[in-house]
Each structure stands twice: as structure tokens, then as C-alpha cells.
Design a protein around this nucleic acid. Structure first.
Lengths: 132, 132
DNA sequence: GTAATTTTGGTAATTAATTACTTGAATTAC
DNA sequence: GTAATTCAAGTAATTAATTACCAAAATTAC
């Protein structure tokens, strides 16, 4: 089964959270980001650990600690943030792979394919700089 | 958190399965539908129990049994099948509800909203008759 | 009527996403 | 140096989707 693209809470935390960090004068920490995005701090912590490992963020412990960007906002594509959390977007038309589908013409008529392509293209054509 | 629309395996089984029943000369049963859609017969059985309860299908037990349509193909909207399994589609723009989002402008720029609307409109504008 | 077939319904196992908790390590402020 | 703060990391609980298994009820074929 192929998965149709969607925007999960995890990816939403990553995308919004990175913008919050980018816009912050001081360092932004887990609790602030959890409050601003309305998510659990545990979930934010997990997501941000991945973003640190994937070199999008630098973490700083201790009081006044938090996260800062590792690269310039213009150099961080939104798509890269998304794929850091969700894995590479595969463009598919339907959960039924073509080789198994019993119908000549896809019943989704490429609507789901277009959804995925539009979603990916939007993330690909924007960087953090666009949201400062 | 709001959920962005997607096409799950469950909904895919319902949509494809209903078309398979509509196209069948004889009755289509769980095993045939599972084979044609490449899904587990258990999952198909669960999905079809719901479609029977929601009055899309009539079930027939015993040898030569299976499922038949309860209504004429032209009277069955694809959207109704989808929503029987997934619940009513709510058009949302982002997992972050507007009242919590810390940004003036939605970072998804209505891409996710458009995804949902296009998806819903496609299902709304087709009936089983379109796939016979 | 008997046997085979098929749906029904219930329970449980599995996987993934999310939430929760806890301990430890690093850092800052004092 | 001590205490407070914050991230790191691991484990576990929860929820939902999917898969699996099983016994019961209904129906057909013989």
C-alpha cells in the first residue's frame, strides 16, 4: 500500500517550530514552542531532537538555553524540514498500487497525485526566510 | 489539532470495493474483494460490515453469498462511501487551529485547504455509475 | 438433514503516532 | 561550588489503524 501525503502533527510541529526559532530574538525552548503550537512538550522534544540530529538546529542546555538555527534561514527549505520528520515524499496516486488495481482508469483521477505534488512543490519553493 | 484529509487503506477498500460490487455480474464476496484490492480479508470484512450497516450494501450469507448494492449506482455518491468510513470531511487549512497559530499568515498558504476541497469535490461529483 | 460456504461479531495482536514520565548530563546564575 | 534550568535519552502508556483468529449464525447445495 502506498501512502497519500498529509500533514501530521509531528510535521506541523517541525515546520512551525523552526519558524518560531528563526523569528526568535532570544533562544526558543521546548516549553515555549509547545505553548505556541498547542502541542505536548514531550512531542516537541522528540521532534526537535530529530531536527538537531539532522543538523537544522543547535541545542543549548541550561537556563536561558534552547535552540538556534544551524544555517541561515534562506538556506533551509521547508521541504527538507518536512522530510526530516516524515521521510521522503513519494508521489503516488492511490493506496492501491498500479499493478494491483483492478480498474483501467484510476478512480481518484489523479486528484490524490495532484494533492501530493502541490504539497511537495509548495514546501520545496519556500525557505524559512519567507516567514521571518 | 485538525486533521488534514488523506486517503487511508480503509477508505480505499470502501471506494474500490463498492465499484467491484457494482460491476459484478454475480455476487462479490470478501475474499474476491480482498484479492482484487490487495488487502487482508479481515480488513475488507470490517469495512464491509460498516457499509452494510450504513445501507450501501446488502449481505447474503452461505455459499454463493456475498454483497449486492442496496441502491442504484447513480444514486451512490463516492463522497458518501468515503464519509461512511472516515466520518464527515472537515475542511481545514492546517493541523494548528487558527486560534492557536502564532503566525499572521498560514505557512501552508491554503495548499492543504485546497487539497481537502479538491479531494472532497472529486468524490462529491462522482457516483458508482461513473465507474461501471 | 448434512456439509460446506459466507457473513457477523468479538477478541486480540501488531504497528505507528502521540503523550507521559523519569533519570541523567550540560550549562547558567548566583 | 550549589542550585536551578534545559536538553537528551530511554521507557512506557495511550490511541487508532490494521491484521489475525475464532466461534456463531445464516444460507446454499447436495
Amino acid at each position: 500500500m502506498s501512502k497519500i501525503v498529509t500533514l501530521t502533527e509531528a510535521a506541523s510541529i517541525a515546520l512551525h517550530g523552526m519558524i518560531i526559532v528563526a523569528k526568535s530574538e532570544k533562544m526558543a525552548n521546548v516549553i515555549q514552542i509547545a505553548e505556541l503550537t498547542g502541542s505536548s512538550k514531550h512531542h516537541v522534544a522528540k521532534i526537535f531532537q530529530r531536527l538537531v540530529k539532522d543538523n537544522f538546529l543547535e541545542s543549548h542546555r541550561g537556563p536561558t538555553g534552547g535552540f538556534t538555527l544551524k544555517k541561515a534561514p534562506a538556506d533551509v527549505k521547508m521541504l527538507d524540514i518536512y522530510e526530516s520528520i516524515e521521510g521522503k515524499i513519494e508521489v503516488t496516486t492511490c493506496p492501491l498500487d498500479k499493478h494491483i488495481c483492478p480498474f483501467d482508469k484510476c478512480i481518484m483521477d489523479n486528484v490524490t497525485r495532484k494533492m501530493t505534488v502541490d504539497f511537495r512543490d509548495h514546501l520545496k519553493s519556500h525557505t524559512l526566510k519567507d516567514y521571518l
